[in-house]
């Protein structure tokens, strides 16, 4: 890629993550009540960003909702009330780590272990999927700014080190320390 300016940024972002899952036959109802709370639940394989949240779906009738961090379990408690009788809402804020890879070569870095087709035509902005990378589960979400990566907390360091090592091919220098930053609006858009 001579002549093309390379840029790459790897950030960990702290956000509350709630998984909501519909009981049998209750998915449409769950979608309706979520919409009533201002959250449109996306179709399978898609993510929908709004100003104050990101909702994504990589498992049938299950959604992950990312919001700026609040008190422990507070977001989940809200959704537990919403889901009552229709499904389950679980706090996964601690179970998943969110990383964001941005820049012109973000996808080039990811194809070094991601077996999913990340071509912008095949995985456009708004697409989401769950897969395995470097032997650990990863959820990928294509955002306008880059790719959001959710990975289990216990293997997050392993995955992070891998990304930094893969990115070295592109001249990426690991930062001396990692910034914990909230998911901001511009990252979600």
């Amino acid at each position: 890629m001579p002549g093309k300016a390379l840029s790459l940024r790897l950030e960990t972002s702290a956000s509350d993550i709630v998984e909501i899952a519909a009981l049998r036959g209750r998915a449409r109802e769950l979608e309706r009540v979520a919409l009533g709370r201002g959250v449109q639940l996306p179709a399978l394989g898609r993510a929908l960003a709004a100003t104050d949240h990101l909702a994504l779906c990589v498992r049938p009738e299950r959604w992950l909702i990312l919001t700026p961090p609040a008190a422990a379990g507070a977001s989940a408690a809200v959704w537990q009330a919403v889901c009552a009788g229709l499904g389950a809402a679980l706090d996964l804020s601690s179970g998943l780590n969110a990383l964001e890879l941005t820049g012109s070569v973000a996808r080039e870095v990811l194809v070094r272990s991601c077996r999913i087709d990340l071509d912008p035509d095949a995985f456009p902005v708004g697409a989401a999927c769950a897969t395995i990378m470097v032997q650990v589960p990863v959820i990928l979400v294509a955002l306008a700014s880059g790719v959001l990566l959710l990975t289990p907390a216990s293997t997050a360091r392993h995955f992070h080190e891998w990304l930094m090592s893969s990115a070295k091919t592109f001249g990426f220098m690991p930062p001396s320390h990692l910034n914990g930053a909230a998911v901001s609006d511009d990252q979600l858009s």
Partner: peptide, 9 residues
């Protein structure tokens, strides 16, 4: 509904 919450807790 089954959910892995091993890393959460």
């Amino acid at each position: 509904l089954l959910t892995d919450v091993g890393d959460q807790w």
